[in-house]
Structures are given as structure tokens and as C-alpha cells.
Amino acid sequence: MKTKFKRLIKRILGRGRISYHLDTVSVSQISGWALNDVAPSTPCHVEVREGEKVLASTKAATLREDLLEAGIGNGCHGFMLNLEMLPFSAQAREVHLYINGKRITSAPLSLQSAFTEVLGDFASEVEKRMDALLAIQNERFQREFNYLKSQLDK
């Protein structure tokens, strides 16, 4: 009775064992599938984090024929995280993968930009200059936003 009650609570809360597989882990993308065994019709939330900072996130809700044929849920459990738009970093990023808030990678995944190898010794300088340009752009956006907001408040 106690076991059935625990299963019922897990089903209501949507918590349970997560089944998953990583198909691709590269600098530009991470892809695979994820399934919450207790709530198989609810898509899992997949995140890539560097420390506490979320770099990319998606729902595992893409239909995959291989999952459908294998009888894994309803087959709509695929995901792909596109990492190409992450800000440039001269250093390798040490990231972890999370599914439904639970870290699934025991060791960090190391993501090194392909440009770092091409740039060689200049990679750190390029990163500093890109950060400075982004700071200027953010400052401009903030000024424009504040101006528009002040016009709307009138």
C-alpha cells in the first residue's frame, strides 16, 4: 500500500526516473532524447548550465521514429540544443546537462569553441574585445529601452 501511494504521489508531481540518451555532444549542439517514466506524455525540460547559469534550454518533444518503433513512450521525446549562438569564450566551457532540474552528467562536458584553435594566442584578446563590444551594445539597448519606456509613461 505504501509503495502504491509513493508511486501515485510521484505520478501526480511528475517526478520519477528519467530515461535518456545523448546522441551528439559537440561544440555546436547536444542532442538525444529524454523521457520521464512516471509522466511519459509530458515533455522533459532539458538545460545546459555553466555553474548556475543556463546557457541553452529546450523541451524534449520532437518525434523520433526510432523511439516510436522501440516503444519508448509516444516517440515524442527527442531534443536538440543549438549551442552555436553562445557568446565566444577563449577558454573551454565546463557545462552540465540537466533534465527536469536534475543533473544527469557526473563529469562536466568540456565545450571548446572551434574558433579558439584558429585564433591561437589571439583568442583571449578577441574575447575581451567582443565582451567590450557587447557591453557597449547592451548599454545602447538599455538607453533606447529607457527612452521608449519614458515615452510610454507620458
Rank of each mutant, 00 (worst) to 15 (best):
S31V: 08
F141R: 15
S150W: 04
Q112P: 00
A92L: 01
K128P: 00
A39R: 15
T116V: 10
D131H: 07
A60H: 05
D23I: 00
Q91N: 04
V46Y: 09
E117M: 04
P40F: 11
R143I: 04
H21W: 02
R64T: 10
A107V: 00
I136Q: 07
A114I: 02
A56L: 04
R129M: 04
E139T: 05
M85Y: 11
Q142D: 14
A90G: 04
L133Q: 11
F5Q: 08
K128L: 09
V38A: 15
R129L: 07
S19E: 15
R129W: 02
G78C: 10
E94T: 00
G101V: 11
L152M: 12
S106Q: 07
L13H: 06
S28W: 04
C44G: 07
K154C: 01
R49Q: 10
F141Y: 12
R140N: 08
S89N: 07
L133K: 04
N138Q: 14
R103Y: 05
T42R: 14
L83S: 13
K53I: 04
L35D: 07
A70T: 06
L8F: 07
E117L: 06
S106T: 06
L67G: 14
R129E: 09
E117T: 05
E52T: 05
M80H: 03
I99K: 10
E52L: 07
A39Y: 02
G101Q: 13
R140W: 03
G32C: 10
E144P: 01
R11I: 03
L97K: 08
Y147A: 11
V38C: 12
T62W: 07
K10R: 15
Y98A: 10
T116I: 00
K59E: 05
F122A: 15
H96Y: 11
N100D: 15
F79A: 08
K10N: 15
M80Y: 03
T105C: 06
G51F: 00
Y20P: 01
R15D: 13
S89L: 00
L119R: 01
R7H: 10
D37I: 08
F141P: 00
I12W: 10
A56T: 13
L67Q: 12
P40G: 11
R49H: 07
G32H: 08
M130A: 03
S19H: 08
A56H: 03
L55K: 11
L68T: 13
L152P: 02
M80G: 03
F5I: 02
Q137W: 02
K154M: 01
Q142A: 13
S26K: 10
V38H: 13
D66H: 09
K102P: 03
L111S: 05
Y98W: 15
G73R: 13
H45E: 09
L97E: 10
G75V: 13
I18R: 01
P40R: 13
T42S: 06
L133C: 04
A123G: 01
G71I: 12
S41Q: 14
V27F: 05
I104D: 07
S89V: 00
A61V: 09
D121H: 06
S124M: 05
F145W: 14
R17L: 06
